[in-house]
Simulated assay, not measured.
Amino acid sequence: MKSQFLLDTTITYLNHGSFGACPKPIFDAFQRFQLELETDPTDFIVKRQPNYLKTARESLAKFVGCEAQDLFFTSNPTFAINVIMRNIKLNPGDEILSTNHEYGAMDRTWNFYCKKSGAKYIRQNISLPVTSKEQIIEEFWKGYNGNTKVVFLNQMSSATALIFPVKEICDRAKELGLITIIDGAHVPGHIDLNLTELNPDYYTGTLHKWMLAPKGSSFLYVKKEWQNDLEPLVVSWGYESVAPGESQFLDYHELQGTRDISAFLCTPNVVEFLEKNDWKTVSKNCKQIVLNNYQRFCDLLNTEPIAPITGEFLGQMASIPVNTNKPAELKNLLYNQYKIQVPVMSLNDGFYIRYSINAYNSQADLDRLYNALEEIISTTDLIKV
């Protein structure tokens, strides 16, 4: 499977979680759309692209478990959350309940909104180590009060790579009459996702991470009751269209002038590749490698697991606590000297070496990381054990 990817073979690549990696067959489909666009831009954009986009949306909707009319493509989850942020109507003093495990760009988006609106963004503390799903739920709802109007939660944390119990939290939020917004950037193609069963008000996820799509392919799902009130982040031809399509919701958010959306259009090729290569089994094997190595790295670094080492909390990536005062230097040394591409993540007051495992990885890749860290511990002061 490693030969199916375009990654530099001289690099031990353990950072799929950040930007994904696109297999050759999918990348070829992506470039075919780009070439088709360039051979006759007018005919492609005006006549062919709408049908291609509809087919892509239908393919994605089936994959994530919702109706095709309830989502549209975006370049990334940050764009998607900004669409929501510009439409949420909160009053001064109203609160958005979140956690202190959210992605930095999302924190910045809501802080921006709160400065403008007078609302408050509550980063409820979820303490580490996590001992159970019930602990997360209990700690999260300690941040709730009569001013809480919105729940915003990542389904998988970027820095800690932990899976959060979003189904239980969404269900409770509905009972309380709260709006639910879920950041599932790491979820599609990684862990099971059925949006109809999860039932959030808003959900965003990427295709270019664990679904292996080309860069710049994500989506925003919106429950029907919110769709007609969702104004576009970019006003263009779809607004008050002279030739309305199947829904105002899609017109407003899909038709945004001239842009290359080839990454969106090859979604059927993405789904076909995953199905053809039995990606559920591939993913299962990768997850097992993640679990098999977690304690081993904790023992090496003399740190403790941040959660039970099970599939309830971990998928195809894991964050190992590391005691370092120089995270950037550690990351650079691993890359420059050992040719290992792995991030050293920061969250609150902690640092974590986060390794990702996908089809192109093997146990040998983690052995290289282990040996490199062992040498760094014995020859430098970058890691304290």
Results as ranks from 00 to 15, higher is better:
residue 66 C to P: 07
residue 321 P to R: 11
residue 295 Q to W: 01
residue 71 L to G: 11
residue 8 D to V: 12
residue 120 K to P: 01
residue 245 G to E: 12
residue 367 D to K: 15
residue 134 E to C: 04
residue 337 Q to W: 03
residue 343 P to G: 08
residue 9 T to I: 11
residue 12 T to E: 03
residue 54 K to C: 03
residue 290 V to W: 07
residue 18 S to V: 11
residue 375 E to R: 14
residue 384 K to I: 03
residue 372 A to K: 15
residue 2 K to S: 08
residue 335 Y to L: 15
residue 147 N to C: 05
residue 353 I to Q: 13
residue 3 S to M: 06
residue 152 F to M: 10
residue 274 L to M: 03
residue 156 M to W: 01
residue 312 E to C: 03
residue 204 T to D: 12
residue 144 Y to S: 08
residue 368 R to V: 02
residue 194 N to S: 08
residue 206 T to R: 13
residue 316 Q to K: 05
residue 227 Q to G: 05
residue 263 A to D: 07
residue 326 K to Y: 14
residue 193 L to R: 03
residue 298 C to T: 06
residue 105 A to G: 05
residue 216 G to T: 04
residue 239 Y to D: 13
residue 46 V to C: 13
residue 341 Q to Y: 08
residue 323 N to V: 00
residue 285 N to S: 11
residue 59 S to V: 03
residue 160 T to H: 05
residue 270 V to M: 11
residue 177 G to C: 11
residue 233 L to M: 09
residue 47 K to P: 00
residue 321 P to W: 01
residue 42 T to P: 00
residue 9 T to N: 10
residue 236 S to Y: 02
residue 134 E to T: 13
residue 365 D to Y: 06
residue 75 S to M: 10
residue 37 L to I: 06
residue 123 R to Y: 04
residue 254 E to V: 00
residue 241 S to D: 15
residue 383 I to Y: 04
residue 175 E to G: 08
residue 231 E to D: 11
residue 77 P to W: 03
residue 159 A to K: 07
residue 78 T to W: 08
residue 52 Y to A: 08
residue 246 E to M: 15
residue 348 N to F: 10
residue 259 R to Y: 03
residue 118 G to N: 13
residue 253 H to C: 02
residue 195 L to G: 05
residue 219 F to Y: 14
residue 347 L to G: 00
residue 219 F to H: 05
residue 278 D to G: 01
residue 178 L to P: 05
residue 309 I to Q: 09
residue 31 Q to I: 06
